[in-house]
Design a protein around this nucleic acid. Structure first.
Length: 834
DNA sequence: GTTCTAGAAC
DNA sequence: GTTCTAGAAC
């Protein structure tokens, strides 16, 4: 609650905080009289906010002086909070002659990932030119802001913070649904990023060195702040202090709170139509439709939120007739791939109707329900029309408007199973149906899902029995969730089919077939053993892939593969097997590390089935580390293996990128990359780290000039889809920082060890300890970045020139590496010994 | 992951 | 003409 006097929204902000003095150049447009509401605005200040240095209202009113100082405005806010919109609005609206520059990290890299250093330099340059600067990056924590504050104080500029403190759900919704974002952050990844970033939020304080902090909680605040900076004359300075902090409540952060507040809002699908109040059911708060999100993102309008909030309370629950059929098993499913994945609605509706027709003809005691949250859902009406034209039995297949997680409690529709429009990692998040279902089902669904499969390929599905404790089971009577993944036609996502609807339609059809087949499988298993959860779990928790739905009964013995659907088995040709016979030498390239007794036929069959849709598999070369980890004994005579334990193998990298480069490989099956690691693996990571340190120490003792760094490649969750090459099996690089090796040949090699693509082992452990997963960068641009020296950061045109430079560069390493012992050198170890 | 090689850059 | 990169093939 706002305890201060009401802020007059209609009066000009400059007048509110800056009473003009005779020598002030008045902005071109007419300003209201100066004195009327100064107190009002300053009365908004929270004297406690920002620590003890928050100034009193009167002091604030008196601080205005003609200084001619430049201003550094540090925008603070997560993606989607409107920082860029703010900065652009100031640039466009400034009308007093004060020159402004926007320093934007998203664009400063000119297509490549921008850095803080680039921003600092640009800001310094602009300040030198006499411009005031808007720092357009997230600046969420003190450390991120500190350098800009320092820069400001160095040039004696006023440093302000404008904190775009909007509701988390708004930022997530906007960043998820925007397109064409300068930093390429949008779609499902954006929700994750916003959520993660907000965990790091540290509210700006005057004690950091700001002369002024302004909180913008909504559209009006933003507009006021923009107007104020637009009207800030060259010789004006704004009052010091904290303004606009209206609530002392905890800062809302994270998607969890988002869902607690609006647990059904994110189920909204892209319907292509605007929502009206009548489309909402009681209790649904903040229903942000995709369409509205886009509008909100595009115009930075907070009106959306208000409008949506206003919808609550006077909505009427839509009356729907649910065909009663207590003898049928019911599957409720959302439209797959049409929202985030932008699949054409016409085509999608044809596919849904075709697949459903086929299904209901085959199974007369099961029914399918297409569900969408919006009554005006276009996909729903298309399907409805097409199903009617095909004369499908409407008691077996029908559409339903409602929240898929509350069909029984709110809609009176009892469903045995619900389908989830999952992501390929089968993890919560994303802000849509997926997030809503994981949220509604409770944590049990995550655990149950993990037992069934780790990942999902486009066109396939996996059935997960809900634990008896799941609220979704207890409240809604849903016994199974079937995760299904369709094709992606969204160019802003990394695995886009680029308008290839031939392939897209096939995958979508496969996805529905797989979903329906899995549903049928549950029912069949339940006819005999309705109360045997274990049994049903075993039979139901299978992944049905696009082409194996027809052969699922034939390969039911193949339990291991269906349990871990993530990895198509290595693709080995018969020639490779022949050539490989009897050999177990270490060689990534021709894959001779794969044991010669590999069950080749089964693998080939498996690869055909699994590779049918996307052909995205671990190439044979990528299996090498896995083979070493699983069967180190086969390579015991190789001098490449340095150490073997139950937990790990230490291997000399066969293509070292530095004088000393070894890999500490985990031997845990299924731990393919950092994306698979969670808190349970912390002790393994610690073991890997300490073994890595031990080897680094050994090498340093042999050659005291060596300096080591320990870390993991950012094998992101998207790498599989992006086909970014990587070696399967989690491995820690222990690499000397000379990078003096013929094995280091190209930009990708260099950047994979010297950009943020390389994640320090210490950071990874800390991240996992704190967040349960590593913050993996998914930006493929990282590996294509310009070549810069890892020590002095100088740029070089090509690898030979870079190599020449690094052979003699003696600059100190970047500060972030010098901290926390991320670099291991002779001094590190001698210190340890003393 | 590497190797090979066409073609761009110098 | 030589060097180097980047994409295809493995």
């Amino acid at each position: 609650m706002n305890n201060g006097p009401d802020l007059s929204r209609h009066e000009h902000p400059l007048r509110l905080s800056v009473p003009p003095s005779p020598c002030v150049v008045r902005p071109a447009r007419e300003l209201p009289p100066p004195s009327s509401c100064t107190h009002k605005f300053l009365g908004e200040m929270d004297a406690d906010a920002g620590g003890s240095s928050a100034i009193t209202p009167d002091a604030g009113a008196e601080t205005r002086e003609v200084t001619g100082k430049n201003v550094v405005v540090i925008l603070v806010g997560p993606p989607g909070s409107g920082k860029s919109t703010f900065a652009e609005a100031v640039l466009a609206g400034a009308n007093t002659g004060r020159p402004w520059a926007r320093v934007c990290q998203d664009t400063i890299g000119k297509g490549k990932a921008g850095t803080k250093i680039q921003c600092l330099k640009a800001a310094a340059d602009a300040l030198k030119e006499g411009k005031s600067v808007l720092i357009d990056r997230c600046n969420l924590d003190r450390e991120q802001r500190a350098d800009f504050l320092k820069l400001g104080s160095t040039v004696q500029a006023d440093v302000h913070a404008v904190f775009l403190d909007l509701p988390t759900k708004v930022c997530i919704s906007r960043s998820v649904s925007r397109t064409g974002h300068e930093g390429n952050l949008q779609g499902g990844m954006a929700a994750m990023v916003v959520n993660r970033m907000l965990k790091k939020l540290e509210t700006p304080l005057l004690t950091e060195g700001f002369s002024r902090i302004m909180f913008c909680k909504d559209d009006d605040d933003i507009k006021q702040a923009v107007d104020m900076y637009c009207a800030l004359g060259p010789s004006h300075s704004l009052a010091s202090g904290v303004f606009g902090q209206k609530s002392k409540g905890p800062v809302q952060s994270g998607i969890t709170k988002f869902f607690k507040k609006a647990d059904t809002s994110s189920v909204e699908k892209s319907s292509g139509t605007k929502l009206t109040s009548s489309e909402r059911k009681p209790g649904q708060k903040n229903p942000l439709s995709k369409q509205e999100n886009l509008e909100a993102g595009g115009t930075c309008s907070m009106e959306v939120e208000k409008k949506l909030n206003n919808m609550n309370g006077n909505e009427e629950r839509s009356k729907q007739i649910v065909p009663a059929d207590i003898n049928s098993s019911t599957l409720a499913f959302p439209s797959i791939s049409t929202a985030d994945f932008q699949f054409d609605l016409e085509r999608a509706s044809d596919i849904i109707v075709d697949a459903a027709t086929e299904f209901v003809q085959k199974h007369d005691n099961m029914r399918l329900v297409l569900v969408d949250l919006s009554q005006k859902s276009r996909i729903l009406s298309l399907v409805k029309d097409k199903a009617a034209k095909k004369s499908i039995d409407s008691s077996r297949f029908f559409t339903f408007v409602g929240d898929i997680t509350q069909l029984h409690s709110k809609g009176g529709l009892q469903c045995n199973a619900i389908a989830n429009a999952a992501n390929w990692r089968l993890k919560p998040g994303g802000g849509g149906v997926n997030a809503a279902i994981f949220n509604a089902a409770g944590e049990g669904l995550q655990h149950a899902t993990k037992e069934c499969a780790d990942t999902l390929r486009p066109g396939s599905s996996v059935t997960v029995p809900l634990p008896s404790t799941s609220p979704l089971r207890q409240r809604e009577g849903v016994t199974h969730v079937i995760h299904v993944l369709g094709p992606n036609m969204n160019p802003m996502r990394p695995d886009c089919l680029k308008n290839d609807y031939t392939q897209g339609c096939k995958i979508l059809h496969d996805a529905y077939n797989s979903l329906f087949e899995n549903f049928a499988s549950i029912f069949q298993s339940y006819t005999g053993k309705q109360n045997d959860e274990t049994s049903s779990k075993k039979s139901a928790s299978r992944v049905i892939s696009p082409t194996d739905s027809k052969m699922k009964r034939e390969d039911s013995h193949d339990s291991e593969r269906t349990k871990k659907c993530k990895l198509p088995p290595p693709i080995l040709t018969s020639r490779q097997h022949q050539e490989r016979k009897g050999t177990s030498t270490l060689n990534y390239h021709d894959n001779t590390m794969v044991p010669s007794d590999a069950p080749s036929q089964a693998r080939e069959e498996g690869s055909k089935r699994n590779g049918a849709v996307t052909n995205k598999s671990w190439g044979s070369w990528a299996q090498a580390l896995y083979e070493v980890a699983m069967h180190p004994e086969k390579y015991k005579n190789s001098n490449s293996i340095l150490e073997v334990s139950d937990e790990l193998v230490v291997l000399k990298d066969l293509y070292p990128k530095a004088k000393k480069h070894v890999l500490v490989i985990s031997r845990t099956d299924g731990l393919d990359s950092l994306a698979d690691v969670n808190k349970e693996h912390l002790s393994l990571l610690r073991s890997m780290h300490s073994v890595g340190v031990k080897w680094a120490q050994k090498f340093v003792e042999e050659d005291a000039s060596l300096i080591f760094r320990l870390g993991y490649h950012s094998q992101s969750c998207l790498s599989w889809l992006l086909q970014v090459p990587s070696m399967r099996q989690l491995h820690l690089h222990v690499i000397s920082q000379d990078f003096n090796s013929p094995g280091l040949k190209n930009k990708k090699h260099w950047n994979s060890f010297t950009s943020v693509f390389f994640l320090d082992s210490l950071d990874v452990m800390e991240e996992i300890d704190q967040h349960g997963s590593a913050a993996i960068s998914s930006d493929e641009k990282l590996l294509a970045m310009e070549l810069r020296c890892h020590r002095c950061r100088s740029a070089h045109p090509n690898i030979p020139k870079l190599k020449s430079h690094i052979s003699s560069c003696k600059s100190s390493f970047p500060a972030h590496l010098l901290k926390k012992d991320k670099l291991l050198s002779a001094s590190t170890f001698s210190m340890d010994c003393t």
